[in-house]
Amino acid sequence: MIEGILVEGLIYGIMVLGVFITFRILDFPDLTVDGSFPLGAALMVQGILLGYNGWVALLMAFVGGVMAGVVTAIIHNHLKVPNLLAGILTMTMLYSINIRILGNRANVPLLNQDTILSSVSTRFAGIVPDEYLLLVFFIIVVLVIKLLIDQFFRTDLGMTMGAMGNNEQMVISQGVNPKTLKTIGVGLSNGLVAVSGAFAAQYLGFADVGLGQGIIISGLASVMIGEFLVMKSNKIGVLTLCAIMGSILFHGVMYLGRYYGYLINMTPNDLNLIKGLLIIVLLVLTQSRKLKKFAAKAMVSK
């Protein structure tokens, strides 16, 4: 059970990192995610079925996700459409595109195919106990992705992007086009989301156009849980770690809801309600924490 939660938390944690980049670093609430997650799954499954190596299929998923994000950014930048609407537009179009990628089907299973996960299992069988194999693999994958993201945000380009969400004027004053930064950031974010979808498809054994439904809410809830773990930090390494931890905790809560919810008469259909309520509770808690801090400051200054 616990490995299951951890593995799911890690797989979806890659998506949470993407959501963290758009929502928190760029201050660009991007809803493309609900479409780019199943896009990654579809490209992965179809890639494997077409006989490509799993890693090549994963790369295709990443590139597909980046392209989806770039489309959203372009719609927003050049047609002056609000970012929320731009994301919804791309997401809606992706629904049809994903079905096309899956060969006009809504669900395509990966029956007995060689995936990245299956090749890892055969290669490391015996070295790592079977039940921990996937866990170890995903810890390594997510750690590598996290460290790459951390490195990116320590470069000049990444740092400038870090200033974007807080102060767009400062970015302009630096002689940098904020549209370019948004395009890079939203593209990168959706690339990560698609990679997450690609791993989810291998883990679940199928790709489904409905996989992305409500993903953005899960991502946002995870980001918020992660933020709740630490007081504000300006260290990118801490922030990305929190996002991943948030994802694991979120999947823990969902797991409890799914398997023990019946104790309080809950059905799996209630999970979406729980997700929404979770976000609301977190919002209330963060607000009151902010207010308390504010009150404390006011007291000190008096």
């Binding site: 000049d156 740092m159 200033a163 807080n166 400062m170 630096q174 940098v176 300006n234």
Partner: peptide
């Protein structure tokens, strides 16, 4: 949301920033 040194680095050189 960023440290003093990060702020100074961002504004030190004008123009597009690369992966340096």
């Amino acid at each position: 949301n960023m440290s003093l040194e990060d702020n100074m680095m961002i504004t030190y050189r004008k123009g597009f920033k690369w992966l340096k």
